[in-house]
Amino acid sequence: MQEMNNEKRPLIVAFCCNWCSYAGADLAGSSRLSYPADVKIIRVPCSCRVNPMFILKAFQRGADGVIICGCHPGDCHYTTGNYYARRRMSLLFSMLDYLGIERERTRVEWVSAAEGAKFSAVMNDFASKVAALGENKRLEDLRCKE
């Protein structure tokens, strides 16, 4: 994060499924395992609820990185949701890459409700990778900003 001056910290949106990853984030909290405050979590019922539109919107609005966290494959609360998420996101991310949003700015991770330590480690790693890339300007759309 040193690369960015203090005025411009990276902005990271994390979509977490309610059953595994959001609970994993809570566990990171109750275990006091820190990660940068740049990460802001949005709770969704399942990783398959994440519409590519949400991610495009985030980048247009100036997010520097977007991460989607869900239950491990095979453990989805809704049986198959994370498989849909995985397929959709790999398509979307390669398209974003083509548009100039580097692969390091997008990520899918499986974090269970028991993996507080993993949640924190993933967020630390993701935030530092995103910070190293600097600000995201490629999709930023001033019209989307007030």
């Binding site: 902005l11 949106v13 802001k40 949005i42 969704v44 019922p45 609820r49 519409n51 539109m53 949400f54 919107k57 985030a58 609005r61 100036g62 997010a63 900003k145 007030e146």
Partner: peptide, 16 residues
Amino acid sequence: FSNKQIMAEVDAICKR
């Protein structure tokens, strides 16, 4: 958890 609701959350978070 409607599209609009989640978009509004994204907006609010990304507003600097």
